[in-house]
Amino acid sequence: MGIRTEYFVAATDEVAATALHAPGGPSEPDLRTDQPRFDSVAVPAVDPFVMLGGLAGVLSGRPYAEVTAHPRHGALVGSGGDEGPWIVTVAQTLVDELASAGPTRLAQAAREWSGTTTPAVPPQALVTALLSLGALAVRAADERHGMYCWTSLTD
């Protein structure tokens, strides 16, 4: 069993929680408009707790325990119960760091981050993930919205 993660942008925690009503996740098209419900990126297996905590530590230079102690690091805003899906927050400090880092810094961070993941994730896979997350963070900043992660279990 694995996890599926989709990071997305929403104006508030309450709006983000409405992604629970989309069985396919925040990128599922709205039936009325045929457009995705939220601006989102799928980032396979980058969980919003441990892996994102490691990334926050790499980008900020702060210890893992400090970044994961942030009250908005992985705070639950919506739950589909024991079987999920779940929606959690991404700390605004990490969103700001992602948005301001730029592609060169994100690629460097991916190489550093790769050495801290368990199991090890190839640096190139993390570069792709970080560039997507960075672009989403820029859009979140432009809209003055928060970033969230929709997570579900997979077979």
Rank of each mutant, 00 (worst) to 15 (best):
81 G>V: 08
81 G>M: 03
81 G>R: 07
82 D>V: 11
82 D>F: 05
84 G>P: 05
84 G>A: 09
84 G>C: 06
85 P>A: 10
85 P>T: 09
85 P>E: 04
85 P>G: 06
86 W>C: 03
86 W>P: 00
88 V>A: 10
88 V>F: 01
89 T>I: 02
89 T>Y: 05
91 A>P: 00
92 Q>G: 13
92 Q>W: 08
93 T>P: 11
93 T>W: 12
94 L>C: 06
95 V>W: 07
96 D>Y: 03
96 D>E: 15
96 D>T: 13
96 D>P: 07
97 E>F: 05
98 L>H: 09
98 L>A: 04
99 A>W: 06
99 A>Q: 05
101 A>I: 02
101 A>W: 06
101 A>F: 09
102 G>C: 09
102 G>W: 08
102 G>Q: 08
103 P>K: 12
103 P>I: 04
105 R>V: 14
105 R>L: 11
105 R>K: 13
106 L>P: 06
106 L>Q: 09
107 A>L: 00
107 A>G: 10
107 A>M: 07
107 A>Y: 01
107 A>P: 04
107 A>R: 14
108 Q>D: 14
108 Q>M: 12
108 Q>E: 15
108 Q>N: 12
109 A>P: 07
110 A>Q: 07
110 A>V: 08
110 A>T: 04
111 R>A: 15
111 R>D: 14
111 R>V: 14
111 R>T: 15
114 S>F: 10
114 S>W: 04
114 S>Q: 07
114 S>A: 15
116 T>E: 12
116 T>R: 14
116 T>P: 00
117 T>E: 11
117 T>A: 07
118 T>F: 13
118 T>A: 11
119 P>K: 05
119 P>G: 06
119 P>F: 03
120 A>G: 13
120 A>C: 00
120 A>P: 12
121 V>D: 05
121 V>C: 11
121 V>A: 07
122 P>T: 08
122 P>N: 08
123 P>M: 02
124 Q>P: 12
124 Q>A: 14
124 Q>I: 09
124 Q>S: 13
126 L>C: 11
126 L>K: 04
126 L>I: 11
126 L>A: 03
126 L>W: 01
127 V>I: 14
128 T>D: 14
128 T>H: 11
128 T>Y: 01
129 A>C: 09
130 L>H: 01
130 L>I: 06
131 L>E: 12
131 L>T: 06
132 S>K: 15
132 S>E: 15
133 L>T: 02
135 A>E: 15
135 A>L: 11
136 L>W: 04
136 L>H: 03
136 L>K: 01
137 A>C: 10
137 A>K: 01
137 A>P: 02
138 V>T: 13
138 V>Q: 15
138 V>F: 01
140 A>H: 03
140 A>G: 04
141 A>E: 14
141 A>I: 02
143 E>P: 00
143 E>T: 10
144 R>F: 03
144 R>C: 10
144 R>H: 14
144 R>Q: 15
145 H>C: 14
145 H>A: 15
145 H>Y: 13
145 H>D: 10
145 H>T: 04
146 G>K: 08
146 G>V: 01
146 G>F: 00
147 M>K: 01
148 Y>G: 07
149 C>G: 06
149 C>N: 09
149 C>M: 03
149 C>R: 03
150 W>D: 02
150 W>T: 07
150 W>K: 02
150 W>L: 08
152 S>I: 10
152 S>M: 11
